[in-house]
């Protein structure tokens, strides 16, 4: 459980009036949103609406053309200057393709943040790594395997184990359930909820998975047309009048997911 801090009222992420352009293509015209501590915040929207770009801007991998993105109150783009090591330890990122280091085994991948950021004894590191590997549901014998020997779903879970090994306060997930079978995807959702309950994690996820959105997202921001079309709970958004939001949530798949989760 994250202890309450002095500045608990400052939002953990603050995106204000972000404008992003790649050459001629305008991705974000005016995006503003805040993420509060302890919530599962989802970023949804059609393909190519700049969800992943927004996430890259939040974690400091990319600079917005204009506007300000703050993470833990620090401007994200300044994270790369290396003066903010402590901030890097406070969040974990799970990339879409896993982004596991291919020259390291699964266990070494998961151990990498601990080895870089702490001076723990190898025994303790080994136990923490083994615990994280078990808690994401990977079998112990996969620990000695290299990423290219793992299946896609296992790689995804290994990436999650690496993202949470430092017990970060904030976890970013880029399309965590895309391409996973429904059982594993549901398990993934459960895992996120469990981590949130256990460790008081704040989760920011980019997703298309409507089931996931209904099941675990506290609030959802729908991006489209370069701006935030709407922010709210799924229930609120599903009642929205915005034509683009309606299109997104009330397609055949949206209705099926709503029928399953929305009525409960």
């Amino acid at each position: 459980m994250t202890p309450t801090l002095a500045g608990v009222e400052t939002p953990i992420i603050e995106v204000s009036h972000v404008f992003t352009r790649f050459g001629e293509t305008v991705v974000h015209k005016d995006v503003s949103l805040t993420v509060r501590r302890g919530e599962v915040f989802a970023i949804a929207g059609g393909n190519g609406c700049g969800k992943s770009t927004l996430m890259r801007e939040i974690v400091g991998l990319q600079e917005p053309t204009s506007g300000v993105v703050r993470l833990f109150g620090i401007e994200s783009w300044q994270l790369r200057e290396g003066r903010h090591h402590e901030v890097h330890r406070r969040f974990g990122v799970m990339f879409q393709q896993g982004a596991l280091f291919s020259s390291l085994t699964l266990a070494e991948n998961v151990a990498a943040p601990l080895k870089e950021h702490t001076r723990l004894s190898p025994d303790v590191i080994r136990d923490i790594v083994a615990l994280k590997i078990a808690s994401v549901g990977l079998p112990a014998d996969s620990a000695a395997k290299y990423p290219n020997e793992l299946s896609g779903g296992m790689r995804r879970r290994a990436a999650l184990a690496r993202a949470i090994v430092m017990d970060p306060e904030l976890l970013f997930l880029d399309e965590p359930t895309a391409g996973l079978d429904p059982m594993i995807a549901a398990g993934f959702d459960e895992l996120v909820l469990q981590l949130k309950a256990l460790l008081g994690l704040t989760v920011v996820m980019v997703t298309h998975d409507l089931d996931s959105l209904w099941r675990i997202a506290d609030r959802v921001a729908v991006l489209g047309d370069g701006t935030v079309l709407g922010i709210g709970t799924m229930r609120e958004l599903s009642r929205s009048d915005d034509p683009l939001i309606r299109e997104y949530f009330h397609g055949p798949r949206g209705r099926a997911a709503e029928g399953q989760h929305g009525s409960t």
Binding site: L5, G7, R70, G73, E75, E86, V87, R90
Partner: peptide, 10 residues
């Protein structure tokens, strides 16, 4: 520059 909430790491 930005005033940060005291990091939980200290």
């Amino acid at each position: 520059m930005a005033v940060t909430s005291k990091p939980s790491w200290t």
